[in-house]
Amino acid sequence: MNYIIETDHLTKRYGATAVVDQVNFHVPKGKVYGLLGRNGAGKTTAMKMMLQLVFPTDGSILLFGKDCRDNAAAIYKNIGSIIETPGFYGNLTGEENLEIMARLRGQFCKNAVPNALEIVGLNQEKRKIFSNYSLGMKQRLGIAAAIMHKPKLLILDEPINGLDPIGICEIRTFLSKLSRDNGTTIFISSHVLSEIEQIADIIGVMHQGRLIEEVDMAELRNRSRTYTEFDLSDGQMAAIIIKSSYPGTDYTIQNNTLKVYGPSPVIGEMNRNFALNGLLVTRINPREENLEEYFSKLIGGGGIA
């Protein structure tokens, strides 16, 4: 597969503590990769290593298939980023701050700054001094700086921090559009599970410096849906019965355990049908698991945030 970000045993240690411990990320081209984890899980440090703000103790980072230490200038011109609360010069306006970024990048295009300000809704406030910005406006300016040069990869650490609900929705829609229409790859971290759930194609879960899960969102949704679990004497026979009697039913069979997904009004009838066909049903268990519960279990409880 064509990975835009690929890390190999990426590790960062401070003294004896491994903040990021042998992490292998795989971010495919054009996908939105949501990175989840509690505070101190190592998400920000991992992102900082990708952006050369922090030097790895061990392991390697491939960006666009190339080692990020080689030819950094060419690689990083295609990347936009926000790490935590974006930092800008307090004595300058939003427009001036973006002009500095564009000049430093060497890609100074006349319309790039106003376009970026318009996208994030700051075009009316472009003459306001950055130190007078609200937290939400600062975050918007950070997003403007990250997208201004039309990057192929966005690395966004908590980009919706401080945004109001409408702002969150706007940014989410914009990021989805970027990924869908322009094929921009987005590597995004957040504490807000519902936001990641709505935008991500792939989820990575970090806990205590380790990447403990990297899973496709579609598979995750399967894992997280409401389902009824049957323990049966013959799974294959159960599958034949479902196919013939309940066509269109979403189900999986593993060994002799049948999972019927979604709320089903025919569970009782299904059970009777199994029994009439000579199957022994030893357990029927209705289950409902949301994403948050799933991750809470995965990282040992207490929630993501």
Binding site: Q52, L53, K77, P86, G87, G90, M101, L104, R105
Partner: peptide, 17 residues
């Protein structure tokens, strides 16, 4: 010191500079 006090290094280093 202002690049530290205004947290701007993390914005400008990845530009890349």
């Amino acid at each position: 010191s202002r690049e530290y006090s205004e947290n701007t290094l993390k914005t400008i280093i990845p530009i890349p500079i």
